[in-house]
Simulated assay, not measured.
Amino acid sequence: MNRRAILGLAVGGTFGGLAAPRFAAAQSGAWPTRGSLRLVAQFPPGGLVDTVSRLMAPMLSQSLGQTVVVENRAGAGGVIGTDFVAKQPADGYTLLVSHASVHVFSAATMPTLPFHPVTDFTHMGMLVEASNVLLVKADSPYQTLDQYIAAARTRPVRYGSSGIGSAPHLLGAMLTGETGAINLDHVPYRGSAPAMQDLMANQIESMIDPITTNVQLMKDGVLRALAVSTPQRLAAFPNVPTFAELGFAKLTSAQWLGLSAPKGLPAPIAERLTTLIPQLVARPELMARFEELQTLPRNPPPLGADFTTIINQQIGEWTAVARQFNIVVT
């Protein structure tokens, strides 16, 4: 799961079987020709998905020559908005900023979903990835992961997460299993914000969360990160060790955001959108913002079939973790 792994094929090879006339039709502007496109964000305004959606929308609009409107359809941990897109016409006018939290972690922990995370979608490619961090307050007695684990072997140490079955929950379960920290207790919340409120109020000792919304608090010295789930240390936080270098290689992971559409999207439209992804995520103004959020694209971004393969692989990996620790969302 190396975020910098070179997994993508050349864009031209991703849809190499397309007939030339159909490709020409897509390039000639046969789509889009009517109304605006909607880019569905399946989480509330202000979060990572909404932020990336609103960064991408004007860039897509400029590239396609048609207005792209962000539409928030939040609820049920992203399932409602994702299901909405799965059931829309595959005409290229409804797109989704897909998220691993739904397409991978919900698939791994929920017995049933109203859609299939792979076969009910056309997955064009990965946009960015966000690592997870283990956080404590700056005045916490835990200066290192070793101190934190040693404490959790002898007395209760609580970690908050954005909910049961979330990526932070599964990472915490893996940390417990890998270290034998039997008193490391999970406290689920309805999102990251209430978990952070309780961390600040000393109701919990720690929190596992995507780095994106915590960058400024880390820079300001309000929060201390004990470890990050990237394969290598982050350039913005060179003093924060990775779980891997501390001996926990299995805790190397990231949550991706991608660009997807309903299944059956015509191949010329899929190719046009897929071709745009590397161009868009490399734009300097977007890269600058991604750097601020510490939520970065892979180089090159996985596209088409390669992106779909990653989704399938991750569903298998995290389903095994969920079963190992009996994590089920009902």
Results as ranks from 00 to 15, higher is better:
Leu113Pro: 00
Phe115Ser: 00
Val52Thr: 01
Ala100Ser: 07
Gln66Gly: 12
Gly47Trp: 08
Arg73Lys: 13
Thr51His: 03
Val104Asn: 01
Phe43Ser: 07
Tyr93Trp: 12
Leu113Asn: 06
Arg73Cys: 02
Ala108His: 05
Pro89Lys: 02
Ala76Trp: 09
Phe115Gln: 02
Asp50Tyr: 06
Val69Tyr: 07
Val85Cys: 09
Glu71Pro: 12
Ala74Pro: 02
Asp50Glu: 06
Ser106Gln: 14
Gln62His: 15
Leu95Arg: 01
Asn72Tyr: 10
Pro114Ala: 11
His99Ser: 11
His103Ser: 12
Gly47Cys: 11
Gln88Ile: 05
Val68Ala: 09
Asp50Arg: 00
Gly77Trp: 12
Thr51Leu: 09
Val52Met: 04
Ala74Ile: 07
Leu96Pro: 07
Leu39Asp: 13
Asp91Leu: 02
Thr67Phe: 10
Leu96Ile: 11
Leu64Thr: 13
Ala76Cys: 07
Gly78Asn: 02
Gln42Trp: 02
Ala74Trp: 04
Arg73Ile: 15
Ile80Gln: 07
Ser98His: 09
Gly46Ile: 01
Val69Cys: 12
Thr112Met: 14
Ala57Cys: 06
Val70Ser: 07
Lys87Gly: 09
Ala76Leu: 14
Ala107Thr: 06
Tyr93Cys: 01
Val69Pro: 05
Leu96Lys: 08
Thr109Trp: 05
Pro89Gln: 03
Gly35Val: 08
Met56Arg: 00
Met110Thr: 14
Pro58Gly: 04
Ser98Gly: 13
Ala74Phe: 06
Val40Gly: 12
Phe43Asp: 13
Lys87Pro: 05
Val69Phe: 09
His116Lys: 12
Arg38Leu: 13
Ala108Val: 11
Thr94Asn: 05
Leu95Val: 10
Asp91Tyr: 00
Gly46Lys: 00
Val79Gln: 09
Met110Cys: 13
Gln66Tyr: 12
